[in-house]
């Protein structure tokens, strides 16, 4: 942004376009403001979400501390998120490595297959897994939620890791093999350090997606609710509204921070290599 004041920035095509710039700023404002109302009203000293605001309070946040079920739900979400992020990142690494390194027939079909959950409505996945679990006699639990999240997270993990694996020269791995290291050691001494930023990004993104995921959880949760399920339950009670706002504000904050780090780490390294 700062450089745009210089008159000779870029070429004829890339010269400054004031209306477009204004549009871009408005776009960002519209993108963020709706979400920012949640933290704003979470400090409002009133049961009702409306203007004018009644004054600042932290009581809704304080109240969150005292809710046992909330902390249980939070712990459930963290456990599922951690497991899902680790598994999907490992599976994503394995898949990305196979896709980028081996000449195999049907490679693009495999990528399409892994990316399918991106273009199928979540509800269909949810009910399909629900039906499968019930027919197989698997009781709904955090494990079934985790499986659902795994399917949702896989495309994102693969999409985050693929550019990493594509971005580094295959002769690096060949050099390692040539210098006497087998596949396992080559992975730990060359591949893993080089794709590490992608791994961090994938872990953080997968965790965030799982932590925030609602649609799959809605169909696949057993007796232990995840945090979004808990929030969904609370939405029915108007008097719980302010606490939900406070809780949501906290979740948003954590998500923003995690995703920002993930994106920053994930993209930064890629740009350096170029």
């Amino acid at each position: 942004m700062r450089g745009q004041g210089k008159p000779m920035e870029g070429t004829y095509i890339k010269r400054r376009n004031r209306p477009l710039q204004v549009y871009a700023v408005l776009f960002l404002i519209v993108l963020y403001v709706p979400v920012l109302f949640i933290p704003l009203f979470s400090f409002n000293d009133s049961l009702y979400v409306r203007f004018p605001m009644q004054g600042m309070t932290l009581k809704w946040y304080h109240e969150l501390w005292l809710r046992e079920p909330l902390w249980n739900a939070m712990w459930n979400s963290v456990r599922v998120g951690a497991a899902v992020s680790v598994i999907s990142t490992i599976l994503g690494m394995v898949a990305a490595r196979a896709i980028t390194r081996y000449r195999m027939p049907g490679r693009s079909a495999l990528v399409t297959f892994i990316m399918m959950p991106l273009v199928i409505p979540g509800i269909i996945f949810g009910v399909a897994l629900l039906v499968l679990m019930s027919r197989m006699g698997v009781p709904l639990s955090l494990y079934t939620v985790g499986l659902g999240h795994l399917i949702v997270c896989m495309p994102f993990a693969v999409a985050t890791l693929l550019p990493r694996f594509e971005g580094f020269d295959p002769s690096m791995e060949e050099a390692s093999a040539d210098l006497g290291e087998n596949g396992w050691w080559t992975f730990w001494r060359v591949t893993f350090p080089m794709v590490f930023p992608g791994v961090v990004a994938s872990l953080l993104l997968s965790f965030t997606i799982s932590f925030d995921e609602f649609i799959m959880a809605f169909f696949l949760t057993g007796t232990d609710p995840t945090l979004p399920m808990y929030i969904w339950g609370q939405l029915r009670f108007p008097k719980e509204f302010p606490s939900v706002l406070a809780l949501s504000a906290l979740i948003l904050l954590v998500s923003f921070v995690l995703v920002f780090i993930a994106q920053w780490v994930g993209r930064k390294g890629l740009e350096n290599e170029n």
Binding site: F27, I38, D212, L252, V259, E271
Partner: peptide, 30 residues
């Protein structure tokens, strides 16, 4: 038209997407 901090813009534009869908919908209810 963005020449500097392109990455920053991209992250800014996509950041809200990664936060809870439920909460974003909830925000509009508010």
């Amino acid at each position: 038209h963005v020449h500097h901090r392109k990455m920053m813009w991209l992250i800014l534009m996509t950041l809200p997407f990664w936060t809870s869908y439920l909460l974003r919908v909830f925000a509009w209810k508010v």
